[in-house]
């Protein structure tokens, strides 16, 4: 049974975003990690780029599935969580602790359009 945390927001493509002032961390939901299965690789080769909501910032792979990762809102990609390079399984262990990128938020008002945990759960399941 997937977990949905209400401390953060979600998008339909299964990313979560957790803001902290004008920066935010982005990861994938517990539901997404369950669907993917054992994650073998995560990458975000967009560090340093300014991306718009919906643009691809990286990808995540399990043995037989690969999925692109999409920006939940506009922002500049500040950092990739490099621990995941060696230990992608951290996402399987705790999808909400294992953030993938840190971004600088361009337009905080976009947050209001995102899904809360309850709405996301409805869509996901």
């Amino acid at each position: 049974m997937a977990e949905y945390r209400d401390d953060r927001y979600y998008v339909e493509s299964h990313e979560w975003i957790l803001t902290d002032g004008d920066t935010a961390t982005v990861g994938i939901s517990d539901f997404a990690q369950e669907e993917l299965g054992d994650i073998v690789y995560v990458e975000a080769d967009s560090v340093g780029e300014s991306l718009e909501k919906g643009e691809i910032f990286g990808s995540v792979e399990s043995v037989k599935v690969a999925s692109d990762l999409f920006m939940p809102i506009d922002g500049e990609v500040l950092e990739f969580n490099e621990v995941l390079e060696e230990e992608p399984e951290l996402i399987n262990e705790d999808a909400y602790a294992a953030w993938i990128i840190k971004i600088k938020v361009s337009d905080p008002s976009q947050i209001d359009d995102l899904l809360d945990a309850e709405k996301y759960q409805e869509i996901a399941e």
């Binding site: 073998v40 690789y41 792979e61 399990s62 043995v63 037989k64 599935v65 690969a66 692109d68």
Partner: peptide
């Protein structure tokens, strides 16, 4: 490393 390949990623 099959996630690179056409049978999984198709056009990507």
């Amino acid at each position: 490393l099959q996630a690179r390949e056409q049978h999984i990623r198709r056009e990507k």
